[in-house]
Amino acid sequence: MSDRSQPELPTSPTSPLAPYPPLPPPQYRSRAPEFYGFVAWSSTYLLFILYLLWVLLPDSIIIALGITWYPSREWALLVPAWTVVVVLLTYFTYFALAFYNTPPFDDIWTITDAKALHPDPDTPNPYHPRAIPELYDIPITLVNRVLYDRREGDQDGVAASQ
Score class of each variant (00 low, 15 high):
Val158Tyr: 01
Pro25Met: 08
Leu56Gly: 01
Ala116Cys: 07
Ser43Arg: 13
Val39Arg: 02
Trp82Asn: 15
Gly66Val: 04
Gln27Trp: 08
Val55Ile: 06
Thr141Arg: 06
Tyr94Ser: 09
Glu8Asp: 14
Leu89Pro: 02
Pro124Asn: 08
Pro104Glu: 07
Pro139Phe: 01
Pro21Thr: 01
Ile132Asp: 04
Asp3Gln: 11
Ala160Val: 15
Leu88Val: 14
Tyr70Ala: 13
Val158Arg: 03
Ile108Arg: 07
Tyr36Met: 05
Val79Arg: 00
Phe105Ile: 15
Thr123Ala: 15
Ala18Gly: 00
Pro129Met: 02
His118Tyr: 13
Trp109Ile: 03
Tyr136Cys: 01
Ile63Thr: 11
Asp3Ala: 07
Glu152Thr: 14
Ala159Ser: 04
Phe38Leu: 14
Arg31Gly: 08
Ala76Thr: 08
Thr123Lys: 09
Leu23Ile: 15
Arg145Phe: 10
Thr14Asn: 02
Ser60Ile: 12
Leu47Met: 08
Phe92Pro: 00
Leu46Met: 12
Ala32Val: 13
Tyr51Lys: 00
Ile67Pro: 03
Ala76Met: 09
Leu50Met: 09
Asp107Phe: 03
Glu134Ser: 02
Gln27Met: 10
Gln27Thr: 12
Tyr136Gly: 00
Gln27Asp: 12
Val87Thr: 12
Ala98Gly: 12
Leu9Tyr: 05
Val39Tyr: 10
Pro22Arg: 04
Phe105Ser: 14
Tyr136Ile: 05
Leu47Ala: 05
Ala32Asn: 14
Thr83Ala: 08
Pro133Gly: 03
Thr102Gln: 11
Ile108Thr: 07
Tyr127Met: 02
Thr112Pro: 02
Ile132Val: 08
Tyr51Cys: 03
Phe38Met: 13
Pro129His: 08
Val158Glu: 00
Thr11Glu: 04
Gln6Pro: 00
Ile132Tyr: 07
Tyr28Lys: 12
Tyr100Phe: 12
Leu147Tyr: 05
Pro21Trp: 02
Asn125Tyr: 05
Tyr94His: 07
Glu152Ala: 15
Thr44Ala: 08
Phe35Leu: 11
Thr110Phe: 01
Tyr100Trp: 03
Pro16Ile: 09
Thr110Arg: 02
Thr123Asp: 08
Leu57Ala: 03
Asp107Lys: 12
Tyr36Trp: 11
Trp75Asp: 01
Val79Ala: 09
Thr110Val: 15
Pro80Ser: 09
Ser2Met: 05
Tyr20Val: 15
Leu97Arg: 12
Gly153Ser: 01
Thr68Asn: 12
Asp156Asn: 13
Tyr91Asn: 13
Leu77Ile: 06
Ser15Ala: 06
Thr83Lys: 15
Asn101Trp: 10
Arg130His: 05
Leu77Lys: 09
Val146Tyr: 01
Gly66Phe: 04
Ile61Thr: 14
Asp156Met: 14
Thr11Pro: 00
Pro119Ser: 09
Val84Ala: 05
Asp3Ile: 06
Thr93Gln: 08
Tyr94Cys: 11
Leu135Glu: 09
Pro7Leu: 14
Leu52Cys: 05
Asp156Arg: 14
Ala32Gly: 10
Leu65Pro: 11
Tyr100Glu: 06
Ile63Leu: 13
Asp122Phe: 15
Leu46Ala: 11
His128Phe: 02
Ser42Asn: 11
Trp109Leu: 10
Thr102Lys: 11
